[in-house]
Simulated scan of single mutants.
Amino acid sequence: MIKYIAIDDEEHAHEVIRNFCKKIPYLDLIEEFSDPLEAVSFIDSYNDKIDLVFLDIEMPRLSGIDFLKAYSFPNVIMVTAYSNFALDSYQYGVVDYLLKPFSFDRFSMAINKVRERQEKNKAISKKKQEEESHILYLKTTRKKYIKLTHAEIKYIRGAENYAVIYTTTATIIASERLKELEQLLPSDSFHRVHRSFIINLDHFDSLDGNSIQLKATDGCLPVGATYRQKFLDYLHKGMQTPVEKKPAE
């Protein structure tokens, strides 16, 4: 749902917007205002619940442009009889500029722009969340905090009270223990293969007996007896493919 408010000093404008919005099922009216100053007090309390604002420009006491200068909204559609304010309004990130009178088709185009912007913002937010989920924050033995992406980590070697992280660019000594890092890292990408080693499977090349060969001649890691079968089960699972059923004769 797109929750909206309308701010316009003309009742006819409210009626047009209201009727057009009723034809679009995902638009939900929150409130209408004929006085922009009344809208100000409402917005101070409900700003985070407003997805869209229909805003007139020429209004008594406070113009639409001054309103834009004072408040920021995810989406604003200007609704006005004056074309000379279009350039100024776009400087404040408005989605569209509707000149009165406007048709339902033109109104729908503006709403589609709002939806496109929302979808784009959702995609950006999702990508950011995914990127954050693939980041590991570590405290080094020098009490310095560093940020690593999962892709940078090749493997980790555990010691008594710390861990050595081998990345694509450096070797880092972290104050976390191997068990703690194992719990922080996703099990579908990182596997404990030895009591002293965790491998990033993106850097796994082959398994020969009790030795794992890393990609790009980065050496070998031992496979502990306790962890061998679980690791083999994972590899076999990854190799399995669905069997195609033959049609009955």
Rank of each mutant, 00 (worst) to 15 (best):
C21V: 09
K22Y: 07
K22Q: 13
I24V: 15
I24W: 00
I24C: 04
I24A: 02
I24Y: 01
I24M: 07
P25N: 04
P25A: 07
P25L: 03
L27Q: 04
D28A: 05
L29N: 04
L29Q: 11
I30G: 01
E32M: 08
F33H: 02
S34W: 00
S34G: 03
D35A: 04
D35F: 05
L37C: 10
A39I: 13
A39T: 13
V40C: 09
V40Q: 02
S41I: 15
S41T: 15
F42G: 04
F42H: 11
D44C: 03
D44V: 07
S45N: 11
S45P: 00
Y46P: 00
Y46H: 15
K49I: 12
K49R: 10
L52W: 05
V53N: 03
L55Y: 05
D56E: 11
D56F: 08
D56R: 10
I57N: 06
I57D: 03
P60S: 12
P60D: 13
S63N: 11
G64V: 11
G64N: 13
G64Q: 09
I65P: 02
F67Y: 14
F67C: 12
K69Y: 06
K69P: 04
A70F: 00
S72K: 11
N75M: 03
I77R: 10
I77L: 12
I77S: 06
V79S: 02
A81T: 14
A81M: 03
Y82V: 07
S83E: 15
N84L: 03
A86Q: 12
D88Q: 15
S89I: 08
Y90H: 06
Y90L: 12
Y92V: 01
Y92P: 06
G93Y: 11
V94L: 03
V95I: 15
Y97L: 06
Y97S: 08
L98S: 06
K100M: 08
F102K: 10
F104H: 13
D105M: 09
D105V: 11
R106W: 02
A110K: 07
A110Q: 10
I111P: 07
N112D: 14
K113W: 01
V114T: 06
R117Y: 02
Q118D: 12
K120W: 08
K120D: 02
K120S: 10
N121M: 14
N121Q: 15
N121P: 00
K122M: 12
I124R: 06
I124P: 01
I124T: 07
K126E: 13
K126F: 06
K126R: 12
K128C: 00
K128P: 01
Q129N: 09
Q129H: 02
S133G: 02
H134N: 15
H134V: 01
L136V: 14
Y137Q: 12
Y137K: 14
Y137A: 01
L138F: 03
L138K: 04
